[in-house]
Each structure stands twice: as structure tokens, then as C-alpha cells.
């Protein structure tokens, strides 16, 4: 179970996350949505330890992780797929999968394949590629998601946070990805938070959390929250939002 207690993050005079309290039981699938700049990524970074909260507490599996390092949180099963993953000169896809899986030796092509197919990539084409500028945005994003899947593999308590996994991804891979999230949820072993604006992902969730202006502005089931999203965005461009254009 993940518990955020009155979590705050201020940078200078800006209150980027204000007093967020949330409880996410083990195995639940939560989608966080809301307007750009609302504080979603910051919230994810606070959970992972990439940012340090200026107030409040973060409890994971009954343990207070608020003051733990990124590494310590990762070792306790928290993982985060970056919204904009960094690129590396010389580090290969197989290296990232090996590190994510916590192994000393390179994974076999079959092992890499189990993660890469789940994001619609063919292992043979990708394992030896460098995670550098030669990858497209969508490829990089899918490799990032595959590493999070590799982190979760075989662990008892995992928290997987995906930050806009749909960004830059084509329709075919996107369909694959939604299937993967569905299957991951069905195993019941992972607590899943996906930051997303995609209706198809939102509709998979047990619970929707709307974050805007650094606060939780609404929270509930898909049936409760989805109409609010539509209402909020009517007059802006509902169709574009719905179609993901």
C-alpha cells in the first residue's frame, strides 16, 4: 500500500504540490490525469525520491520512505518510467534491461524478448542498440516501459509509475501497451499508477485521480470522474482530447 500524507513541494514561492493525501491499496490500478503543469510528474518524482518533499510523508508498505534515497526506494520495489527518459551514449537496451532486472549478467535474448514484446518491440532488432539519439521518441519511451516491467518481474510488492506512457507511440503499439497494462493489473502483484490523458487507459483503471493546480481536484471511479473530465474540456476541444490528437 502507498500512502501520501499531506505531501507538499514548493520551489521558491511556487507551490507545485500542495497538501496531497492519497491512499492506494496494493494491487490497485490508478490513473492520474489533469491539465499540463498540474503537478502530476512532480508528484511521481516525489514518490520515487527524485524530488524531496518540503512537507508531509510518503509511506510504502508500512515503511516511511520520505527520507530514503532513490536507490533505497528502488530496492523496496518502487519504480518510475520517466516522462522524458534520458539517452545514453554506449549503454545498450540489453544493459538497461539487465540493470533493471537487477542481474549481473546480460539477460538472454528470450528474457529480453518477454519484456520488449510487451511494448511492441522485437528483441532481436533492439537488444544491441544503444539507448542514444538513434532511437525515436516512441522507441525510447517503449524501452523505458520495458525496463519498468523488468523491475517488477518476480517481486512481491512493486509500485510501478508510468508517466504518460502513450507519448509518441503509434496506434498499433498503443493497443499492445494497453493490453500489457491490463494483463499486468490482472496478475494482482503490482500497484500501478499511470499518468495519462488517454481514454483507453483511463477506462482500464480502478480509480481516477485528477490533479490540477498541485492538488487532488477529484477522485473516484471511471464512471464518476470521466464525465467531469468531459465537462471540463468541453469548449476546448473534446473530440481532439477523446481521439488523442
Amino acid at each position: 500500500m502507498l500512502e501520501l500524507r499531506n505531501v507538499q513541494f514548493t520551489a521558491g514561492s511556487a507551490n507545485i504540490v500542495q497538501d496531497v493525501s492519497l491512499t492506494i491499496p496494493e494491487g490497485r490500478f490508478v490513473v492520474i490525469t489533469g491539465p499540463n503543469g498540474g503537478g502530476k510528474t512532480t508528484l511521481a518524482k516525489l514518490i520515487m525520491g527524485l524530488q524531496q518533499p518540503t512537507g508531509g510523508a510518503i509511506i510504502w508498505n508500512g515503511e516511511d520512505v520520505t527520507n530514503m534515497s532513490i536507490t533505497e526506494r528502488a530496492q523496496r520495489g518502487i519504480s518510475y518510467g520517466f516522462q522524458a527518459p534520458p539517452r545514453f551514449k554506449g549503454i545498450r537496451v540489453s544493459d538497461l534491461l539487465r540493470l533493471a532486472a537487477g542481474k549481473e549478467k546480460n539477460l538472454s535474448i528470450d528474457q529480453c524478448c518477454t519484456y520488449l514484446t510487451k511494448v511492441g518491440l522485437c528483441a532481436r532488432d533492439y537488444v544491441n542498440r544503444d539507448v542514444d539519439n538513434s532511437l525515436s521518441g516512441g522507441e525510447l519511451k517503449r524501452i523505458e516501459i520495458a525496463t519498468i516491467l523488468a523491475r517488477g518481474n518476480g517481486r512481491e510488492h512493486t509500485l510501478m509509475i508510468f508517466d504518460e506512457p502513450e507519448a509518441g507511440i503509434d496506434l498499433w503499439s498503443f493497443a499492445k501497451l494497453t493490453d500489457t497494462f491490463k494483463a499486468l493489473h490482472a496478475t494482482g502483484t503490482a500497484t500501478i499508477i499511470i499518468i495519462s490523458h488517454q481514454e483507453r487507459i483511463i477506462r482500464l483503471a480502478d480509480e481516477i485521480v485528477m490533479v490540477s493546480g498541485g492538488k487532488v481536484s477529484a477522485q473516484g471511479s471511471v464512471e464518476e470522474i470521466f464525465p467531469l473530465i468531459l465537462k471540463d474540456t468541453v469548449g476546448v476541444c473534446t473530440m481532439a482530447e477523446k481521439e488523442g490528437l
Binding site: I70, T71, Y80, P85, F88, K89, G90, L96, L99, T147
Partner: peptide
């Protein structure tokens, strides 16, 4: 790049190990 070290730390590596992996790959 600091981002690179942070990324590898989120995979469970210490900062030192992350740096070593980045250098090994680079060379």
C-alpha cells in the same frame, strides 16, 4: 548528465555504480 545517474538509481543502482555503468558503456 545528472539525469542519467538518476535514471540508473531508479533501477536500484547506487550513485557510484550508476556512474561506473555509464563510463563502461561510453568506453
Amino acid at each position: 548528465a545528472g539525469e542519467q545517474i538518476l535514471k540508473l538509481m531508479t533501477l536500484g543502482l547506487t550513485a557510484e555504480k550508476a556512474e561506473q555503468e555509464i563510463l563502461d558503456g561510453f568506453l
